[in-house]
Design a protein around this nucleic acid. Structure first.
Lengths: 212, 212
DNA sequence: CGAACAGTTCGATTACAATCGAAGTATGGA
DNA sequence: TCCATACTTCGATTGTAATCGAACTGTTCG
């Protein structure tokens, strides 16, 4: 299971059980021990529990052990030839996930436009102003029947991204501006050239952070 | 036991049993497994068996694990403030051991003056010429009652050094030339300034290889 | 609300690793 | 030649890690 997490991304308990070829009970027992031993970190997301390596030290140790084990080749980080589109701008239900979603969220947190608060984000006054100026219908997103701004963590990235009604509204605006476009039958978006320009200008995000 | 070998030097089975706090039987069992698993290398020397890490990969893995274990501080390679004299030029009975003995032997092997051959070294014709020119009484060392040129491996270094009658004759010559001097009551020698110069010139050995 | 799902806890079984006493081999020195 | 030393092999005991069925909690969704 540790080897399955070597790339630094999160996996759910069931995925890890499958990787290890053991029952969910057994995996649960091991995962609990690994968390207690501070080798893994766990974050609960609804009924899912996402596990990831607790730090780079753990990754180093696992890699060193895999190198000794000889079949480390299977797991060795190959020189990735570009990032798959699904990793760049994955859609998670109706909001932006993947590297794009994470980068946007990270930037907004860093600029104090969003504040992590429990399992949610809180939109600060300056954050509301920013999104309004950007054309997001913040008022409509304050729908009582849906969580407003939730933290979400999908399998492609370790850090959380913005979900909930606000996340959906932000994604809608990106689509409206044609900064991203849908790919029929696929669960990812493509960032357009205008989108790339906007990233650098409006969001101060280096494209290399997203496209590698 | 692996942690006790982290510095790359060799230890005997009994030493390792002591380090691990287990009986010699138990240590023997574990050491056999570790050798079979290619984590340790073993060389027999008379009735002793010297164990060392099989390669740098093993050291890396152990270090990574010790770092995780938290009490890795105890084992972490500190910034060593110079090398103890006993490591530099230890005397092993009557021949040169320690880093000096190893470096001299290594150089002679590299220059094809000595050839490892089983548990002994074979002195090549060019080697004999070299030592004679250097003032070693090679003829006298060919005494029938003593092994001529044996491989010896003591606890301070991993690589073998020259022992036997020839090793003793070489050490005698070093003392005679005052390139090393004895320290009363101690089992090590001190390399003099003339000795350092000779190392660089005659033996092409960088002093940093020996004194760090 | 109830069914499906993700995950956990509990308990019993099983297998195996760790350990060391006893007895063996090989080496070195007196 | 004989004893001490260094180490190994064998065998029996012990503890405990790994495993999964059964039953549980909590979440999502229709």
């Amino acid at each position: 299971m540790l080897a399955a997490l070597i790339d630094g991304r999160s996996r759910t308990a069931t995925e890890l059980a499958y990787h290890a070829g053991v029952s969910p009970q057994t995996a649960s027992s091991h995962l609990a021990k690994l968390v207690q031993a501070r080798l893994l970190a766990m974050e609960a997301e609804g009924r899912f529990r996402h596990y990831r390596l607790a730090g780079p030290n753990v990754g180093h140790a696992i890699e060193a052990l895999l190198a000794l084990a000889g079949d480390g080749e299977r797991y060795r980080k190959g020189p990735t030839k570009g990032i798959e589109p699904i990793r760049i701008a994955r859609t998670c239900y109706d909001h932006l996930a993947g590297r794009l979603g994470v980068a946007l969220t990270h930037m907004m947190v860093k600029r104090k436009l969003l504040k992590p608060s429990g399992r949610d984000f809180r939109l600060t006054p300056s954050g509301e102003k920013f999104l309004r100026k950007f054309g997001v219908d913040v008022e409509k997103a304050k729908h009582p029947r849906r969580a407003f701004a939730r933290q979400c963590r999908d399998w492609t990235e370790r850090r959380p991204h913005l979900a909930g009604a606000l996340g959906a509204a932000l994604a809608a605006r990106w689509l409206e501006l044609r900064w991203v476009t849908r790919v029929p039958e696929e669960r990812y978006l493509i960032v357009t050239n205008r989108g790339r320009t906007a990233l650098k200008g409006l969001f101060s995000i280096k494209p290399s952070d997203i496209f590698m």
